[in-house]
Design a protein around this nucleic acid. Sequence first.
RNA 1: GCUCUGGUAGCUCAGUGGUAGAGCGCUUCCUUGGUAAGGAAGAGGUCGAGGGUUCAAUUCCCUCCCAGAGCUCCA
Length: 640
Amino acid sequence: MNAPTIAITLPDGTTLEVPRGSTPRDVAERIGPGLARAALAAEVNGEMVDLDRELEEDAALRILTQRDDEALPLLRHSTAHVLATAVRELHPEARIGFGPAIEEGFYYDFGVEEPFTPEDLSAIERKMAEVVESDHPFERRVVTKEEARELFSDDPLKLERLEEFEDEEVISVYRDGPFLDLCLGPHVPSTGRIGHFRLLSAAGAYWRGDERREMLQRIYGTAFFSGNDLDAHLKRLEEAKRRDHRVLGRELDLFTMDSRVGSGLILWQPAGSVIRREIEDFEQELILRHGYEIVYTPHVVSEKLFEISGHLENFAENMFGAMEVEGGRFRPKPMNCPGHICIYQAAQRSYRELPIRYAEFGTVYRYERSGVLHGMLRVRGFTQDDAHVFCTEEQVSDEVRRLFDLVDEMLATFGYPYTIALATRPEKSLGSEEQWDRAEGDLRSVLEARGLEYELDEGGGAFYGPKLDFQLIDAIGRKWQGPTVQLDFNLPERFGLEYVGDDNERHRPVMLHRVLVGSMERFIGGLIEHYAGAFPLWLAPEQVRILPVSEQWTESAQELVTSLTEAGIRARLEDRDTLGYRIREAETRKVPYMGVIGEREAGDGTVAVRRRGGGKKQDVMPRGEFIERLTEEVRSRARG
RNA sequence: GCUCUGGUAGCUCAGUGGUAGAGCGCUUCCUUGGUAAGGAAGAGGUCGAGGGUUCAAUUCCCUCCCAGAGCUCCA
């Protein structure tokens, strides 16, 4: 016979005896009225549940309030239900799809005849406020499949989902006021707990993400516990828009596109080319110091190469079509690795040569569907800072260690913090278990030896080897794909790579693919947004603009421009229009330094230096000192 | 590729069934300036392309091209 009470263990280790069938809300009230008021949901034995779920057994319990990390997704999911509630009030015919919380908010998909207009969104938002005002409780009910079929008889999309439930699965539905949804939960106690939300956009989305299925209309929104958090989020969205690399790219003449050239193909203007060349020079210097050798491979190669590499089999849908030349078929390369392998195979390799590290700024072409193209971030032609390391299995961990040194130096220069994910063996994979264990162990031990935190992406590796992914965090907290290190057991096999060991036997080397920036296009697109177009001195296309106060000081100003140019500084004279106008122009062009030359400066050989964004503040200094300071700032690649 | 939205001057955008406008930029002239816009004049448009309706289409309709927001996918 069950005892009449159960023991509830709280996070601080204390235990409460409560009657069987008590709810987390009861427990919260036992702990204190403040907590009871703040409570949103609970975690029982690691499972998230509603506050009024009855507890039948001893359990570990944690009351969730808005201070807990899990609370925000909960709030957003509940807000999605409020959205659906409002849509159903205004458009009773709308069929309901799914409405989950996502990283920055939530969405809900609806089957409607006409897409939602901005006016619809406003009306829906107002209706949502009414739903919140009504403070409907979220009520959970467990139903049988048969009951559920009845309840959702008018909701074909829900019925489809319903049929996928296994017989023994618990089917729960949630009601808030007039709206009923098939939902796993949990939810906040009532719609009144939802305070600060905003609908952001509407767009088409395939039912269940399948492009062969019907297109539904998705409404995106976000929600927060406090108005301040919502405002901060909306400001961040504004800020992201302000930093859009496509807008800044045009304003600053960094890059352009031309439909005559083709979609997804970047034309680098001189200013953007300066940035790219500086980064390439920096990286080249870096990798030469780290023992790489630079190679070059052709852009168009025989299709036979991609038969051997397997690209034709596995990557064809991302490759440009073949061109026929004298009966042979050729393709623009989508990756650089096969070419590097051929260079490796140009000679018989001895263990004494390994590791061999080939690097190339290799331009590759990939077919991307027109709808996915986006500025410089998603293109059809891009240049990878690609490298391939051929080494023995024993050398892998040392090579990975060296890569970390490279990555650290590289990313610190741009001011990117980063996170790391280790992606391990997927279900379908190539190579022996020992090989994988060893490779993953190598990666792991390097991470641990460095004391680096990392996420584990279980089963996220490619079929041909585990990998490390670095994610960059930019100036406004967004994540970008950064360096990757990929072990490859496949290509050495396919190409039959060999080296002669100290035992005079032939062995198979391991191959590492790695990129630091990934693609120059994507990286620089991201960098434009990271710096909001205000590049540090070493990258700035124009580093100094020299402004004579009036034309009579042009000659003196020109002398300074010449000295700067001779010192390797990108400097330009600007002497038309008024000084105020030219200063404004230099500021909007985000030139890091302005040097003003007037009667005083021309007289005593100084320059009045004004820093970008520094307002009226100016620093008068001897010209030699100015040049020295700039040279040092460039040399150290200061982040400025 | 799909859904939706859009395409008017170099850029950002307004506008109309009777062959077109603003601001910025550009050119020229005046102004010779001291730290985020001195003044004036001027040039610049096949109103994305093709077809249809109409006395008349940049405007209404259809097709196509291009771009954007999503979906799916990726460096």
